[in-house]
Amino acid sequence: MTTTTSFEDKVAFLQQHGVDELAHSSADLLAHLQGVHDLLRAWGCRPQLCDAGLFHSVYGTEIFPTGAVPIELRPVVRGLIGEDAETLVHLFGTVSRAGIFDAAFEGAPFLLETRTGGQVGITDQQYTDLAVLTVANWLEQRPRFPESSRNSRAREFRTMRQFLPITPRQALDEAYRFTPLTQPAT
């Protein structure tokens, strides 16, 4: 479901919650969120995934635990970006990064480790969306990181490529100088 809330209203909500005042990867969180959204949009992702990119870490994540939006406001966020996008945002904040990467090696059915040590089952589509979101999140901020860390998680990203649609996969291949896959992702 696509919402009728304008991009400007979504950004205004984020600003009301101070995301433009939180430091993130040598920028501010709002700049990062908009950058992830813009990458997803440039890759031709559906609007729900782009909206998830705009909000992807507002509840906090394992790596960026500073949540700007209280989890109690999930219904409000859902009203702004729709149920599918908000579910992805919640999953992105709930699961561990290792869980997302481990699932690339283990494959379906996808059972991801949460930040609290539990597990959550997700659909194949949700895994693909989380993989694309993970790639966009990383590639957006990667240029601001020291050269020595820009190729981190290469093994994991190389394996994750099989679950990515062609455009994000090509962006990842270019960034890491991976040899392109010879068969399309499923």
Rank of each mutant, 00 (worst) to 15 (best):
T2M: 10
T2N: 11
T5C: 08
S6C: 11
F7G: 00
D9Q: 13
D9N: 15
D9P: 09
V11T: 11
A12P: 07
F13C: 00
F13T: 00
F13Y: 13
Q15G: 00
V19Y: 05
V19L: 13
D20C: 04
D20N: 14
L22V: 15
S26E: 14
A27E: 14
D28P: 05
L29V: 04
L29F: 12
L30Y: 12
A31T: 15
A31I: 12
H32P: 05
Q34R: 15
R41A: 14
A42C: 06
W43Y: 08
G44F: 11
C45K: 07
P47R: 03
Q48W: 02
D51N: 15
A52L: 07
G53A: 09
G53Q: 03
G53E: 08
L54R: 09
L54Q: 11
S57Q: 10
S57C: 09
V58L: 01
G60E: 12
F64D: 11
T66S: 06
T66E: 11
A68E: 04
V69F: 06
I71F: 05
I71A: 08
I71S: 03
R74S: 02
R74N: 00
V77N: 04
L80E: 06
L80G: 05
I81W: 11
G82N: 01
E83Y: 04
E83G: 10
E83C: 07
A85M: 06
E86A: 12
T87Y: 02
L88T: 05
L88V: 08
H90W: 13
T94Y: 09
V95M: 10
A98W: 13
G99Y: 03
I100Y: 01
I100M: 12
D102Y: 05
A104Q: 11
E106R: 15
G107W: 13
G107F: 10
A108I: 03
A108T: 04
P109Y: 14
F110S: 03
L112V: 10
L112G: 12
E113G: 10
E113N: 15
T114L: 06
T114D: 12
R115I: 14
R115W: 04
T116V: 14
G117E: 13
G118Q: 14
I122K: 00
T123C: 01
Q125F: 00
Q126P: 02
T128W: 02
A131I: 09
A131H: 04
L133P: 03
N137F: 11
W138N: 11
W138C: 01
Q141S: 13
Q141K: 13
P143G: 09
R144S: 15
S148A: 14
S152M: 07
S152L: 12
R153A: 12
R153F: 12
R153C: 00
A154T: 07
A154R: 14
A154H: 03
R155F: 08
E156C: 01
R158P: 00
T159Q: 14
M160Y: 01
F163K: 04
F163N: 01
L164I: 03
L164N: 05
P165C: 05
P165I: 00
P165A: 11
T167W: 11
P168G: 10
R169S: 06
Q170M: 15
Q170V: 10
A171G: 10
D173V: 02
E174A: 15
E174V: 04
A175M: 06
F178P: 01
F178I: 07
F178Q: 09
F178M: 03
F178D: 08
P180C: 08
Q183P: 00
P184M: 12
A185C: 09
